[in-house]
């Protein structure tokens, strides 16, 4: 088990929004507030539970929590060691603990799929997946499909076709379509519609998503 901790270079963050007068960026403030809330919840958890039962765990049962415990998550080809609680969702582990904020959380109920990541190359909602259930599986996030130098061909197609408006659903859209192209390199528009039928876009930019994905598919086919 590697103890690799991601450096800032490997997890590039988008430029933060305008700093507040006190010099705290909006994102930095929100993260700080989140950690405080988590800390309070943790204290409640420790007070609310007895640990006596753990001593006699039967065969075939592994018991976790409620306190944080160490796990290793395999994300974008790298191993990340972190502490999670049983209730930590994969989306929260990625965004709050690993600073991988490319994955977005909008509805937090599995309805909008802006939190889409690939679990063993299959698109799932990271907001409805417990982080502990991702242990032992390969997670791919939007950060994992490109390098600092080069976008994924699908991302480049999204840019060419202007396939985003507010952009909040875009990482999830891209992940759904990346998974589609891996399984079906020559999709029809109906296939793309089906693949993103879980991705809610309130701006209504679906036609450009279809065009971008079909364009990326034909570009990839030419390369192959």
């Amino acid at each position: 088990m590697s103890d690799h901790q991601p450096s800032q270079k490997e997890l590039p963050e988008a430029p933060s929004t305008a700093p507040t007068p006190a010099g705290i960026s909006r994102r930095g403030f929100l993260k700080g507030a989140g950690i405080t809330a988590a800390g309070t919840a943790l204290l409640e958890g420790v007070q609310g539970f007895s640990r006596e039962a753990v001593a006699s765990t039967p065969k075939g049962v592994k018991e976790f929590g409620p306190e944080p415990f160490p796990v290793t998550l395999h994300i974008n080809g790298k191993e990340h060691a972190l502490q999670i609680e049983p209730r930590t969702t994969l989306a929260d582990a990625l965004r709050i603990q690993l600073n991988m904020t490319g994955t977005k959380v909008s509805c937090d109920r599995g309805v909008c799929s802006s939190c889409t990541v690939l679990l063993d190359r299959m698109p799932v909602n990271s907001c409805m997946t417990l982080a502990i259930d991702a242990v032992g599986h390969h997670v791919t996030t939007i950060e994992g499909i490109s390098t600092d130098e080069q976008m994924h061909p699908l991302q480049a197609a999204f840019v060419r076709h202007d396939a985003m408006q507010c952009g909040f659903c875009t990482p999830g859209m891209v992940m759904s379509c990346v998974s589609l192209l891996e399984k079906n390199p020559h999709p029809t528009e109906a296939d793309v519609r089906y693949a993103v039928s879980g991705n809610l876009c309130r701006c209504g930019t679906y036609p450009k998503v279809f065009a971008a994905t079909l364009d990326a598919a034909s570009q990839l086919a030419r390369k192959a």
Partner: peptide
């Protein structure tokens, strides 16, 4: 907060 018994 909860405990999770992971069963095989």
């Amino acid at each position: 907060s909860f405990t999770l018994a992971d069963c095989s």
